[in-house]
Structures are given as structure tokens and as C-alpha cells.
Design a protein around this nucleic acid. Sequence first.
DNA 1: GTGGATTTGTCGTTTATACAACACATTTAA
DNA 2: TTAAATGTGTTGTATAAACGACAAATCCAC
Lengths: 188, 188
Amino acid sequence: MTQSKTDPRVLRTRKLIMDSFIKLSEGKEFKDITIKDITSEAMINRATFYYHFEDIYDLLEKALSEVLLVNLDYDIYQNDALNEEAFASIFKAITNFQKSLSNRCHRGYKDTIARIIREQLEIIFYKMLLKQNRTEEDESLKITAVMLSWGIYGASVEWRRSSKVPPEEFIKLVIPSIMYGIDIESEN
Amino acid sequence: MTQSKTDPRVLRTRKLIMDSFIKLSEGKEFKDITIKDITSEAMINRATFYYHFEDIYDLLEKALSEVLLVNLDYDIYQNDALNEEAFASIFKAITNFQKSLSNRCHRGYKDTIARIIREQLEIIFYKMLLKQNRTEEDESLKITAVMLSWGIYGASVEWRRSSKVPPEEFIKLVIPSIMYGIDIESEN
DNA sequence: GTGGATTTGTCGTTTATACAACACATTTAA
DNA sequence: TTAAATGTGTTGTATAAACGACAAATCCAC
């Protein structure tokens, strides 16, 4: 929270790079996208790319994280309690995100994408648990967040594999068991 | 032609400024647009504005010139001869441009706008006359260009004041008298 | 395999932009 | 009329971005 606000040039350039990457990934596979492709599209110098990102995998990571967060934040941070409704909207956001990815061409990077989604979920769950429990920091909350993120992500995999019902209904089936675990903490 | 190509940052920033100005001028009058309005919209620093433009009038001038040139270049530089067809399309471009301006709010700056249009016309006519006559430079061509630019612009004023016919037909009425003057030069 | 071409990642230097501060002009309200 | 607020234009300094050059890695045709 104490971060002095970042230089507008940095924000502009990062956005240019990310947008270009997302645009390019509609047209070709990740493995065929070069740094030069991206920087040409973004109309910035190639060296500038390396000022902001380690390499193209770093960009993939950050770009996907951002897109996912856009999907998530919008739905969640109004109703900040970790209730049934929140789980439903988070789950919906994940399935939406994965659907949007399937239009793009990141074949062969499913595992990377899975990790990115899970890590972001973990961060969000931890934040919400912290808010809900009013503790400064808590190892058990962290573990809870880890388990929730793996669990929810797993559920989304299972949903894509087999389910015919819409995501909202699907997640309702397992929410009760999740909520009992949470309720233990959320009484104070 | 020998200009070493300009820094991409400059092109980006100028475009940001011009686009912001054009967008803002759809919403309010020129006299109510401040530099801060423009730079906020363009997400650049206010000081950077003064790196590219003298003041807001300089911006008005350059922005309008550019928009006008976009209208003109597209129509003309294919058929590069200064024939009946060329006059018609130039005239059409001018009337289009003025129509697009009437949507924006530059009341009280008609004279400035008139001058800008006329100056651009003069440049274009001179270029075309030069090409047509294969001379290195010629004072009489320059004067011809001046007269043509005033004349055509005057015609557009007259057309807006009174005419009910479309611009293409309107200009055809006066083309013959113009062309005789031109024909003297264009035989070589 | 070998060799040429493309791509990657880094570096030093130059230049454009951000920013804060300033004096001055213009507008607005009391 | 004055005082406060807002807008203009400039300056010095810090930093991000452009650029060209480079070695190393990777790709690809033969």
C-alpha cells in the first residue's frame, strides 16, 4: 500500500506490450511468437521489452495473471465475504477465463497456465480470509487458501472434463462441504 | 525527403495529443479546452505538451492541417494530374472537412480555420503543378497555386452559402474557366 | 553433422518524457 | 476592488525509452 505511484511511462509501455501479446496470441501459437513480433506490434524498442520482463515466459505469466484478475476482481471485491455467492462467482470467472484462453493459442502450456490460475486464486483467497478473520497474519489461513485454490481449480478441471450443467450449478454441489471447513474460522 | 526518421516516442506522443484534442473538441468549444484537459486525456505530462507545440493555437493549426490532409491525400495522389477529376475530388474533400468541423465546436475561429485550409491547398496545388510542369521551381507556378487556393476556398464558401446542388456538380460549373488558365502550362 | 540465418539477451549512450516548482496571466467570487 | 483559484508557459533534474552493436543461443537447410 505504501508504493509510491509508478511512472506513467511504465504503465503505458506495459499495457502496450501486454495488449500486443494478447492480440498476437489470437493469431498464432505461443511458441511462434517472438519478442520482435511483440515489440513491433507495440511499436516500442526491443530492448525496452527487457526493461519490463525477464523473458517471454515472464510476459506470459504476467499477462495471464492480469487477464484473470480482471475477470475476478470485478465480480468479487464488492461482496467481500467468502460466502456461497463468492465461490460461485469465482468459479464462474475461472471457467470464463479458460474459455477465453481456448480461443487463443497456448497449446503445450496447459501446466503453466494451471499454475498461474492456482497462484492467483491462492492470493485472493488468502486476502479474503484475512479480511474475514481480522488477524494480522496466520499460517493456518495460508494453508486454507492453498487448499481452497487447488480444490477450486481441480473442480474447474473436472467441470470441463465431464459436466453438462452450467458452472454456477456445478459449484453449488460442492459448496456445502467447503463452507463447513470455513465456518470454523469465521465466527469471531 | 532527407529527414532521418523521427523518434517513435515523438510520433506516439504527438498522436496521443492530437487524438485527445480531436476527441475533446467533440464535447466542448475550443475556448473551453485547457492544456490540462488535453494532457490528462492523453495521459502525458503537461510539460511534454510544450515540447511539441508552442501553445494551444499551434496545436489547433497542426491538428486541423493533419485532418484536412488525411481527407485530401487519400483522394488525390493516385490521379496526380491536375485535371477536372482532381479538382472535383479536392473540392469534395474540402466540403467534407468543413462538414466534420461543424460537428465540432470551434466557433469563433472560422478565420483561423479558413487560413489553415487555404494554406494547405496552396501547398498541394503547388506540388501538383510542379510535378506537371517538370520545372525545378517557378515563381509563376507559386502564384498560380495561391490564386487557385483562394479561388477554390472561395468557391466552397459560396457553395455553403447558397448552393443546393452537391459539391461535385457545383465545382463542375467553374472548372472550365480554371482549366483554360492551367492548360497554357501543361503542354510540355 | 556444418554453416548461415534468425532470435535472444545485454550494454552504453543519447534523447524524450515525467515531475515538481516557479512566476505570471486570467478568471471568478465576494 | 481585492483575494483566491485556475490556467499558462518555463526550467532543472531524474528516469524511461530508443538505438545500435554485440556475443551467444537456437533454428534450419543441405
